[in-house]
Amino acid sequence: MTFFNEMAMLFTRYNSFFYEGVRNTLIISAFSVLLGIVFGTLMAMLRMSKILPLRLLATAYIEFIRGTPLMVQLMFIFYGLPMVGIQFPNIPFIPDFSRFAAGIVAMSMNSCAYVAEIIRSGIQAVDSGQMEAARSIGYSHSQAMRYVVLPQAVRNILPALGNEFVIVIKESSIVSVIGIADLMFRTKDVIAVTYRTLPSLAIAAVIYFCMTFLGGQLISWMERRMSHGKG
C-alpha cells in the first residue's frame, strides 16, 4: 500500500476524529483571535497612552508575553491558576469547558500582545505629517486620530491581523498538551489506535495547511477589496 493510499484509508476510517479536531481547533483559534483583538486594541491604547505608568505596564506585558514560550504561558494558566485558587468552572452542556477556557485564555492573552504591537506599528506607520496637517487646520487630537490616522492605519493593520489568525491556527496545536481535543490531539488519538504515525501526521499537516492557506487567500481577497479605488 502506498503512503497516499494509507492516508486516504486512515482519513476515511477516522474522519470523525479529524472533523472534531478541526472544529475544536477553529473554535479555539476564532475565540482567541477575537478576544486577542478586543484586548489587544485596549493594550495598544495603554501602550500609546500619555500616562507613563500605564505605558510601562503595557510595555512590560507585551515584552513578557512575546519573550516567553506559549507553552509555558499555557501551563501557567492551566496548572498555575487553580493552585492559587482560580478555577475555570465546568459548565453543563459544554463538555470540557474548563480546559477550553484555560486554552482560550492563554491563547488570547498571548495573541493580545501580538495584536497590540500590530495595531501600534500600524498606527505609527502612518506618516506623522497626516496628524500634523489635521491638527494644523483645527482637528482635535482625537478627531485627527479618528478621521485621518485610523482609516489609514486600518489598511496596515487588517492584513497583519489576518496573518495573526493564520499564526494562531498553527500555534493552537499546542493546546493538545492540556487535553483539549483539537486537531493535533485527535491526530495523536488516531496514531495511538493505528500505530500509523507518519500518514496520520501527514493528514494533520494537510488539514492545517488547508486552513491556513484558505485563511491567507481570504485575507488577500479582503486586502484587494480594501485597496480598491484608494491610494
Partner: peptide, 27 residues
C-alpha cells in the same frame, strides 16, 4: 491659521473634495 507643508500632507485616505470639505463641515 492655515499651514502649508513642504511635503503637502494631503489626507491620503480621501479624495480631493473630501480633503477640502471635511474640516469645514466637521469643525
Amino acid at each position: 491659521m492655515g499651514m502649508v507643508f513642504q511635503q503637502f500632507n494631503l489626507f491620503n485616505n480621501a479624495n480631493v473634495l473630501h480633503n477640502l470639505i471635511d474640516a469645514p463641515m466637521r469643525i
